[in-house]
């Protein structure tokens, strides 16, 4: 019979094994993507426009579109999410209205992204006549990201110590002054970390964008930077296929002979971006924390 001490050891070993297995899986996944992708990536691939039906196209416009949609989405969701977070944590008393708000956030968070995508197709693309466009895509992504951002904001604000808040109020500051000058400032490290992490997820989203930002992109001419001009890359009513959507498209719609190399390269770029978001979020998080505690 195995002694209880030995069985403990075996059980512990099994759990180490599971942890090892999962870590190896991650390394293998990322290693596979980078190994296949880095052979494809070069300056031309990163900047050139895709070829509709020949080999040798790049992913330049897709990278630009992904970044543009990400930045616009963040410009919308960060203030909105912060607003809801502040309202829930600072102003609202538990009531029927806060319960409704919370149920809404929870429902929105659990909606499948394809459902939000076809909602966007119906409302933004068709009823509001925005077409397959940057704007439709940004609005769909905002609906997708808003619940995440709200929770983040609420948690970050709630983590600010009560003493700080009470001290500020005791010094005669109003509630709003306390929120903007004390609570938000103290919550910044938590907020920034969360925002950058969720940016990584927005960057990789595809299902919500198929039917909103579209699966095509026009030729981008960077000599025209006026966002109200039809030909500008910054024009909000042009279709904007993102990097993640492009990977899906070259696999299904793609007519290029080098479709699999393109998918390899684009996957690697996507993964590198996500890794970068992850690292940056860690660095800024600890940097801001040090800076704050250093003062």
């Amino acid at each position: 019979m195995i002694s209880s001490r030995n069985s403990e050891r075996i059980a512990t070993a099994i759990f180490y094994l599971i942890a090892l297995l999962v870590s190896v899986l991650l390394v293998a996944l990322i290693g596979y993507i980078l190994y296949h992708g880095l052979r494809v990536i070069n300056w031309h691939f990163l900047t050139a426009a895709p070829q509709p039906f020949q080999a040798g196209g790049g992913i330049g416009p897709e990278i630009f579109n992904s970044l543009m949609l990400l930045i616009l989405t963040m410009l919308l969701t960060v203030p909105l999410g912060l607003g809801v977070g502040i309202y829930l944590s600072e102003f609202a008393r538990e009531s029927r209205i806060t319960r409704i708000i919370r149920i809404c956030i929870e429902s929105l968070a659990s909606m499948p992204s394809i459902v939000i995508g076809i909602f966007g197709l119906m409302l933004f693309v068709t009823i509001l006549k925005c077409g397959f466009s940057v704007l439709s895509g940004v609005m769909a992504l905002t609906a997708l990201n808003l619940p995440v951002m709200t929770r983040l904001a609420e948690d970050a604000i709630k983590n600010v110590s009560k003493d700080l808040r009470e001290a500020s109020l005791a010094l005669g500051a109003t509630q709003w002054q306390t929120i903007t000058n004390v609570v938000l400032v103290a919550a910044i490290p938590g907020l920034v970390t969360g925002v950058i992490l969720s940016a990584g997820r927005v960057f990789g989203e595809a299902a919500a964008l198929l039917y909103t930002a579209g699966i095509t992109t026009p030729a981008l001419h960077f000599n025209d930077v006026n966002p109200f001009s039809n030909n500008s890359p910054f024009y909000l009513f042009r279709p904007a296929e993102t990097l993640a959507v492009h990977i899906w498209k070259v696999n299904s719609e793609g007519l290029n002979p080098d479709a699999s190399q393109i998918a390899d390269g684009a996957s690697a770029v996507l993964i590198i971006m996500v890794l970068l978001f992850n690292l940056v979020s860690r660095w800024t998080g600890s940097w801001l924390f040090n800076k704050k505690t250093g003062q």
Partner: peptide, 18 residues
Amino acid sequence: SVQAGGSGTGLAQIAQGS
């Protein structure tokens, strides 16, 4: 401006005049 979206989408949108 050239968009894809599928034949169904194209026909639906032209029928609506959008």
